[in-house]
Design a protein around this nucleic acid. Structure first.
Lengths: 107, 107
DNA sequence: TTTATATATTGCAATATTACGATAATAAAC
DNA sequence: GTTTATTATCGTAATATTGCAATATATAAA
């Protein structure tokens, strides 16, 4: 089939899965790490840094944006991508909550 | 293509991506949550609880085992699955390290 | 207004993932 | 040893993901 049976799981489970899926690619991890280290974060720099084609990077950036992990400010003909700190912290808290809850109930 | 260019990323990036990928499915989230709540955690119980076919659950359990997030003890004809607490904590620490490092460097 | 630069979108091929039926393997019960 | 119960594996269909070339869009510069 290839399709996940989303409807049989609850909102929290699907939400966690979506977050994990966005983070489940080394290119997107590398992009996040690179963006966080830059003063000004421009897509074309990312292309040079990561070593994937420009459309591929653009697609990964779109996926990161889809859950608001990053935000892009248009500066002339460039786009300055930055980590969305509030969402970043929110996600970290959510994941820790999942890890702590699951851990503490362990038999 | 469909294949991730693993070779252009470092060990940490690939490792994080693999962990996130294992966690990127709501069925596997649900399985982890369910296992953590049970005294004795048997695959057939999981099948009843989650609502996916037995081979599907078995496959998901295999993926969770592939990074040692769970361990299965054979008890007669049943298998008792449990969260692998040491690995669980290790993964949580690793993810927090990633989140903290990436966050703190943000411009 | 043409040209150059930066990013996004589209379309496609290769591969991966999800799910399940059929079946195999294992071990207890009889 | 046969049966029953539990879990794993195989094979397969449907869908998703990854990556890129070609192209579109948008803005600045000339």
């Amino acid at each position: 089939m290839g399709i996940t049976k989303t409807q049989i799981f609850n909102v929290e489970q699907n939400q966690l899965a979506i977050i994990f899926k966005v983070l489940s690619n080394p290119a997107r991890i590398a992009i996040l790490q690179y963006i966080s280290q830059q003063e000004s974060c421009i897509c074309n720099d990312i292309v040079d840094e990561i070593g994937l084609a420009q459309p591929t990077i653009s697609q990964h950036l779109k996926e990161l944006k889809s859950i608001d992990l990053i935000k892009g400010e248009i500066e002339g003909k460039k786009v300055c991508y930055c980590i969305n700190l509030s969402k970043w912290t929110e996600v970290q808290t959510l994941l820790n909550s999942f890890f702590n809850t699951t851990k503490s109930n362990c038999c």
